[in-house]
């Protein structure tokens, strides 16, 4: 009887889960084996041809590498900067609320607003940044026009936009550390640096894990700011894998091929998540 009532409580969620996640997941896998197109016709069974094609498609590897690069660079920056900002505003200071608001502020903006702001800042000839550089007697920089720099520019805009979330998590974590530990250590003669290294950072262990896990997942699915900042057609040099999936399916109409890439990406994320899980659970055992 106990189990049955439990089932009915879970049923609404389970129904949604089934309709919007499990079924599309199965359909996506089926499509990935066909030449399914947005137009609906010509969707014959292809076997593994889509998978063979994608392993030989340089655009897939390129997009995967871009996504990985974005994740590898943005994750540490976002985590460390969030921690740094949290440490700065966790001490008694005048107008502390203002700093906290300013650091968290950009996070509440929708992506379209963020992109509008940075697009104008990055304008090649008369954008705010290039204008400033010219006034200082320096040369102008093509922020979004060369592949290498475009990735940097996108990461800068992303950090400005999303660091507020990590900042908030760290700030909350810092406030959970008992004051007494600092007092006691100060009496024992600990320097502020030692306090940071021996008390603050270790006590934030759970927050670190949370921030890193959430950040890696968020960075791997990067799409909107790249799509919007690079304009129609995008830039192959900064195209992310989610963007390539979207383009394959919805602008090139190849749903089957897009599904196949999604599945490969899905497998990679599953492996990354599993590795993270193993890593953290082992550390917990060691503790």
């Amino acid at each position: 009887m106990k189990t049955r009532s439990g089932f009915w409580f879970v049923a609404p969620f389970f129904a949604l889960y089934l309709v919007f996640l499990v079924v599309p997941l199965a359909m996506g896998f089926k499509y990935s084996l066909t030449n399914k197109s947005l137009g609906g016709n010509n969707d014959g069974y292809l076997g593994l041809a889509n998978y063979v094609e994608l392993f030989g498609d340089p655009a897939v590897w390129n997009a995967l590498w871009n996504t990985l690069l974005f994740t590898l660079v943005s994750t540490p920056v976002l985590a460390l900067l969030g921690l740094g900002m949290a440490l700065l505003t966790n001490r008694a200071m005048p107008a502390r609320w203002l700093y906290r608001l300013a650091f968290f502020g950009p996070f509440v903006l929708p992506v379209s607003v963020v992109v509008l702001i940075w697009d104008w800042l990055y304008q090649p000839a008369f954008g705010l940044i290039n204008d400033l550089l010219t006034r200082l007697g320096l040369g102008t920089v093509g922020w979004l026009s060369s592949d290498g720099l475009a990735m940097t520019s996108i990461i800068i805009a992303t950090v400005w936009w999303t660091v507020g979330f990590n900042y908030l998590l760290y700030l909350a974590g810092l406030q959970d550390i008992p004051r007494e530990m600092y007092e006691v250590s100060a009496i024992d003669g600990a320097t502020p640096w030692q306090q940071l290294r021996r008390i603050t950072v270790p006590m934030l262990r759970d927050t670190h894990q949370l921030v890193v896990v959430l950040q890696i997942l968020a960075s791997l699915k990067v799409f909107d700011q790249i799509y919007l900042l690079t304009g129609q057609g995008g830039m192959p040099g900064v195209r992310s894998i989610v963007q390539y999936i979207y383009e394959s399916g919805f602008t090139k109409f190849r749903i089957g091929y897009a599904s196949a890439i999604s599945y490969v990406f899905f497998a990679l994320i599953a492996v990354a998540a599993l590795a993270q899980f193993k890593f953290f659970s082992r550390r917990r055992e060691l503790r």
């Binding site: 030449n35 197109s37 947005l38 137009g39 016709n41 010509n42 498609d57 090139k252 109409f253 190849r254 749903i255």
Partner: peptide
Amino acid sequence: RHLANTPRPA
């Protein structure tokens, strides 16, 4: 060449 060898979707 890559585009021309892509299976035609629609």
